[in-house]
């Protein structure tokens, strides 16, 4: 793809705390996101995926690195520029209960966004609210109701309507469906897919559920302790992972079809040991080595660089990426 990317993140670092107990939440992350693309950001809790999503919207202090949006570096943005940027990039939060004001009718909550950004003449804003509600599959007549009158799925629709009010180009969705039941989850995922096509939206989709990410995202970035472990097109990455961490994550996901198959012919699972270490403790070498089944002496000393593996669309930060990648090629042929 030779198009200018909508979003270009380069060596981004988000650090917290003083130098002696510094937490490196995001530690040198680079990626590009083309217009109309949907990229998933996955990893265990504490891997920095939410922080990265928030940092891209300038909601976290940035230590170093650059974020280019339509070619302009937004890290230096202040005041008017920053407000203009926020009209183009919006966020959908995980908890639709927590992100709506309980004392404000949902129509008013959406209208407030239009007021703040002075979108359209005041008289037509009510009509716009109705349009937005209908766009996310709610009745326009619901505008006068309050958040507690809605179910979790409906509230998430309201959260999406609110994000769409400014007609953004980029939406960062932070675990938008993880608080919802499976049947409702699919409805919201399908809505996000439809909206993406209709409005040519670009998504950065932060989630811990790999199957959900596969359903909605064309590309995936796997993070661990603030760094990218692996990145690539989702179908291929799931079929043939090139990083032991991705392998571990994938094999840990409970999947109905796979489990039913395994009942007939039991296999041993490649379980990872231990917990995610605290980010503040510095780990020499590869950050994943204490939990990695493939770790060798080299992994304890040398930090593996994120590099191209295989046909060129895949990036992996593992000394043994090719070995892992080829092993799965054999497996998928069987």
């Amino acid at each position: 793809m030779s198009v200018v990317p909508l979003l270009e993140v380069d060596a981004l670092k988000v650090y917290y705390g003083a130098s002696f107990r510094q937490v490196r939440a995001v530690d040198g992350v680079s990626f590009r996101l083309a217009k109309g693309q949907c990229m998933g950001l996955v990893g265990e809790s504490g891997c920095g995926k939410s922080t990265l999503g928030r940092a891209i919207l300038r909601l976290e202090p940035i230590h170093a690195g650059s974020i280019r949006f339509n070619g302009a570096d937004i890290v230096s943005f202040k005041g008017v520029d920053l407000k203009a940027f926020r009209r183009k990039a919006q966020m959908v939060f995980q908890d639709p209960y927590g992100s709506l004001n309980p004392r404000m009718s949902i129509g008013r909550a959406i209208e407030e966004v239009l007021d703040v950004h002075k979108i359209g003449p005041r008289e037509t804003r009510r009509t716009r609210v109705s349009e937005l509600l209908e766009a996310v599959g709610l009745e326009a007549g619901y505008a006068g109701r309050y958040p507690h009158e809605f179910s979790g799925g409906q509230r998430q629709r309201i959260g999406i309507a609110r994000a769409l009010a400014v007609e953004p180009e980029l939406i960062v969705a932070d675990e938008p469906v993880s608080a919802l039941d499976v049947s409702v989850q699919v409805q919201i995922l399908n809505l996000l897919k439809d909206l993406q096509q209709k409005m040519n939206l670009t998504y950065l989709f932060v989630a811990h559920d790999l199957a959900v990410v596969r359903y909605i995202c064309s590309d995936v970035v796997v993070m661990y302790l603030g760094r990218i472990m692996e990145a690539g097109p989702s179908d291929e990455l799931y079929r043939q992972p090139a990083h032991p961490y991705t392998v571990a994550l994938l094999s840990a996901v409970p999947d109905v079809n796979r489990a039913l198959k395994a009942r007939k012919q039991p296999q041993d699972s490649s379980q990872v040991r231990g917990d995610v270490p605290s980010i503040s403790g510095s780990i020499p070498g590869c950050p994943f080595h204490p939990r990695c089944p493939r770790a060798e002496a080299r992994c304890r000393q040398e930090i593996p660089a994120l590099r191209i593996v295989g046909d060129g669309s895949r990036l992996s930060a593992c000394h043994f990426a090719e070995e892992v990648w080829e092993k799965w090629a054999v497996n998928s042929d069987q």
């Binding site: 179910s151 499976v182 049947s183 409702v184 995922l189 199957a211 799931y238 994938l250």
Partner: peptide
């Protein structure tokens, strides 16, 4: 069946999922 069809899968075609309309 609806519950099973609503779960995004890790293997096979990603396809289009239906879910169950309405709520409990």
């Amino acid at each position: 069946r609806g519950l099973l069809e609503a779960v995004p899968k890790l293997e096979g075609s990603a396809g289009h999922l239906k879910g169950i309309d309405g709520h409990v």
